[in-house]
Design a protein around this nucleic acid. Structure first.
Lengths: 216, 216
DNA sequence: TAGATTGTTAATCGATTAACAATC
DNA sequence: TAGATTGTTAATCGATTAACAATC
């Protein structure tokens, strides 16, 4: 998933020693813990947390083992302590600046989506072939020419890629050359980039097509 | 993912005998073949097609083996024939009607996204707590009360779920009860539904969080 | 025929799960 | 102490890859 991917596996490159799939599930656990924290729940067992996150308890314990010993045998895990530890590991402490490239139909939609900000990611700039002046509360759209400079000046690490398939590879290369480390790729092609660049693919058309197969 | 997913595995339930991950990759191959067909390429080897799709040639051949013998030894695969066969298997011949539930920030964005239609999926109705009259070229938004009836009258099989996490489980159950077979779930919670319902999860916040981990 | 490439089997790899000793 | 639940090891399962015989 997707993985989904659903769906399916979607990315390349391992950075630390935590397996990619485990890292993904840590995010899942983190969200479930957030829910429990707001309900003022103090401790949670691996069985309970696993059930909310939709995994097996053995898998959850194995995943958490990568984060060091965090639970208390016979009792379970302290919700807030575990949450804080996962936030630390996933690097959620800091607000991450992100750029968005390709402001067509989907790009426009994602620009106006407030869910990213809510989770600690700020879209600091948007780029497209045709630049546009900023307007009432709307981020301006810059021409592609200024992309490289901005990435380097502001030390941006992450990009959301929403350009058409026909230009995705070339824009992906520009991003990589400018120093971008990680790309969330919504374009409908597989990018061929150096292994040091992490790429997660989200292909909405394939997700639907995939579902339609399983819906008979 | 990509889940890819990125990222991760994202769905439940097997319908036929083709593995879920293979089905997903078949969609990937289909898109690469489309590209080649427009370039008037006649035949393609497993090595060439695999490279475009970003997989190993052995994996591609194994995936295609589920679709029956399609290639010619010593030569490769005929682009158009293979494409047609994959479309047939994935059930892309027919246009699939889909409903969208939850027209908040992201739902609104997806409603205006034209990529779905381009791939053979038509959003035939949208639902939200607050109904809205249709306007200039814009689909009307119906109240939740009319959802069940419409699903059953029009025999809708697929739904895109964009409601907040707090109501996702309950709306998911309503969809399942009304006869929906497959759900593309954008809400940030794991749905607990009967195994007969296929669910693909797309969690944009987790995708970004996941990338930020690998971007150091 | 010689060269190329498929379809398929067997080997490898990695991820999930079961089981249980450690221990709170 | 008795009961519960973790952390971890070993067993299982599934998916990927390498290798090659079949064959165009």
């Amino acid at each position: 998933m997707s993985k989904s991917p659903g769906t399916l596996e979607k990315s390349t490159r391992a950075s630390s020693d935590i397996p990619k799939k485990t890292v993904y599930r840590l995010s899942l656990y983190l969200r479930s813990l957030g829910l429990m924290a707001t309900k003022r729940e103090r401790v949670v067992s691996s069985a309970a947390l696993a059930s909310v996150a939709g995994v097996q308890s053995a898998q959850l314990r194995r995943d958490l083992a990568y984060c060091g010993p965090l639970g208390k045998r016979g009792t379970g895990y302290e919700v807030v302590i575990l949450r804080n530890r996962l936030e630390e590991i996933l690097g959620r402490a800091s607000l991450q600046p992100v750029i968005l490239v390709g402001v067509g139909n989907l790009g426009q939609a994602l620009l106006s989506y407030k869910g990213f900000a809510r989770e600690g990611f700020e879209i600091v700039a948007a780029f497209d072939l045709k630049a546009q002046k900023p307007s009432e509360g709307r981020l301006g759209i810059r021409g592609m020419g200024s992309m490289r400079g901005l990435i380097q000046r502001q030390e941006i690490r992450m990009a959301i890629l929403c350009v058409p398939g026909s230009s995705a590879q070339s824009v992906g290369e520009q991003l990589a050359n400018a120093g971008i480390q990680a790309i969330l790729n919504f374009s409908p092609v597989v990018l061929h980039l150096p292994e040091t660049i992490a790429v997660n693919n989200v292909n909405l058309a394939i997700e639907l097509e995939n579902l339609s197969y399983f819906a008979r």
